[in-house]
Computed example of a mutant assay.
Amino acid sequence: MLRKAYALLGLSFLPCAAGAYAGTYVNFYALFSNSWLSVVAFFIFAYGLMFAIEKNRYNNLGIGLLMVFTFGFGFFLSPILQFALASRIGGQIVGMAALMTAGVFFTMAAIAHRSKSSMNGIAQFLTVGAVVLIIGMIVNMFMNIPALGLTIAAGFVIFSSLVIMWQIRAVIAGGEDSPTSAALTLFISIYNIFTSLIQILLAVMDNR
């Protein structure tokens, strides 16, 4: 089961990369001149497809929808990549974020493999953490406070790292029986860590 989930996760980065590449040919500022429109479009796409993937998590349609999902996430990733790469040290920042993301994933996966705990306590913490982060995102949409944005980004790194550990442990313990669902959760967590680290590194390293 876990091997299948890892295989799907690895495969999902191919359409994600294709989506990010396709996004380089799109003028996002013209397409989503209203920032609220971009947020609404993203959430409709994300949650609509997540629901469809979960409904079809035991068949090939679910796998196909997962690939569409990751392509779309790659597409929406393109603006922050373009913004980061416009910096004189943009390539360094993106590379560091990718390496750090990989490091976090392999570390949390190793912990999950060695742990004997059911991690029920972590599951409860993650539920509360998700609510807090969503509320923080909504608040910052109105207030646009840079320090709050960085705090939320750091929170997403911690939250998503724990989700990786929890999800892998759930697969190992038999609490998750769909490799498609597991790959979806892991992909979203890695995506959140990567984008959050880019935001943090831009704030810390970029003086343009």
Results as ranks from 00 to 15, higher is better:
3 R>N: 14
3 R>K: 15
4 K>A: 07
9 L>S: 08
9 L>K: 02
10 G>C: 04
11 L>C: 11
11 L>Y: 06
21 Y>D: 00
22 A>E: 00
22 A>W: 08
24 T>G: 02
24 T>K: 06
28 F>V: 12
29 Y>Q: 13
32 F>E: 01
33 S>K: 12
33 S>L: 05
33 S>T: 10
35 S>Y: 03
36 W>I: 08
37 L>E: 09
38 S>F: 05
39 V>A: 11
42 F>H: 02
43 F>Q: 06
44 I>S: 09
44 I>W: 12
46 A>L: 12
46 A>T: 09
47 Y>N: 09
48 G>A: 12
49 L>F: 04
51 F>W: 14
56 N>R: 00
57 R>C: 07
58 Y>S: 08
59 N>P: 06
60 N>H: 11
64 G>P: 03
64 G>A: 05
68 V>A: 14
70 T>M: 12
70 T>N: 11
74 G>D: 07
75 F>R: 01
75 F>S: 03
76 F>Y: 15
78 S>N: 13
83 F>V: 05
85 L>S: 09
88 R>W: 00
89 I>E: 11
89 I>F: 04
92 Q>T: 15
93 I>V: 13
94 V>R: 01
96 M>Y: 04
98 A>Y: 06
101 T>E: 13
102 A>D: 03
103 G>N: 12
104 V>H: 12
106 F>D: 09
112 A>W: 07
114 R>W: 02
116 K>R: 13
119 M>A: 10
119 M>C: 06
124 Q>P: 00
124 Q>W: 11
126 L>W: 10
128 V>A: 15
128 V>Q: 06
129 G>A: 14
133 L>D: 05
137 M>H: 02
138 I>D: 00
139 V>D: 11
140 N>Y: 06
143 M>D: 08
143 M>L: 14
147 A>D: 06
147 A>Q: 04
148 L>F: 00
149 G>N: 00
153 A>N: 07
154 A>Y: 09
161 S>N: 04
161 S>V: 04
162 L>P: 03
163 V>S: 10
164 I>K: 08
166 W>C: 03
168 I>Y: 02
168 I>F: 01
171 V>Y: 02
174 G>T: 05
174 G>I: 05
175 G>W: 07
180 T>N: 13
182 A>Y: 11
184 L>S: 10
191 Y>R: 10
192 N>E: 00
196 S>P: 15
199 Q>V: 13
201 L>Y: 09
201 L>W: 09
202 L>G: 08
207 N>T: 12
208 R>C: 04
